[in-house]
Design a protein around this nucleic acid. Sequence first.
DNA 1: ATAGATTTGTTCGTATGTATA
DNA 2: GTATACATACGAACAAATCTA
Lengths: 79, 79
Amino acid sequence: MPRQQVIDHDAGEPVWLQLTAILRHQIETAQIGRGKLLPSIRTLMQTYEVSDGTVKRALAQLKADGLVDSVPGRGYFVL
Amino acid sequence: MPRQQVIDHDAGEPVWLQLTAILRHQIETAQIGRGKLLPSIRTLMQTYEVSDGTVKRALAQLKADGLVDSVPGRGYFVL
DNA sequence: ATAGATTTGTTCGTATGTATA
DNA sequence: GTATACATACGAACAAATCTA
């Protein structure tokens, strides 16, 4: 598996936007197939070493963009 | 007596103080009854079109004044 | 059937950086 | 230089929905 993209806290771009871009790329390149669940918020926190709120903000953006949807108690899945 | 309902960013008075006055008035006139929750910080941000920090500062003042108390994960309620 | 674990969703608390007046 | 205001970021608590043992 290729090396994961990494968050740059010192970049000008907000962390939550960087994470949005990373996840969007994974979806658009079908690294996460349609209908598949994304990693949980807690997992994403650990993977990218960002906070709870930052992950939620990134996922909310993807949902607003219509790339994913979410179900409480289940997770986020690719549309 | 005129009652302020909107924030005037061009007024001399700080926005957070204007918001404090608005909320204090709503509490003292029992528009928000005892024990009731105030609108959330996020809601107040949207309602008055001010930032997160500004709402928090106003609420902190009301709490310091003993008009409200707060519970993390729940909200601010009228004393 | 119910108890526990996991997950999303919402909330407050604190801190930092940037811009502006 | 100080105070205000906004945006970002992290942290934590609470609740409800879901799944499973």
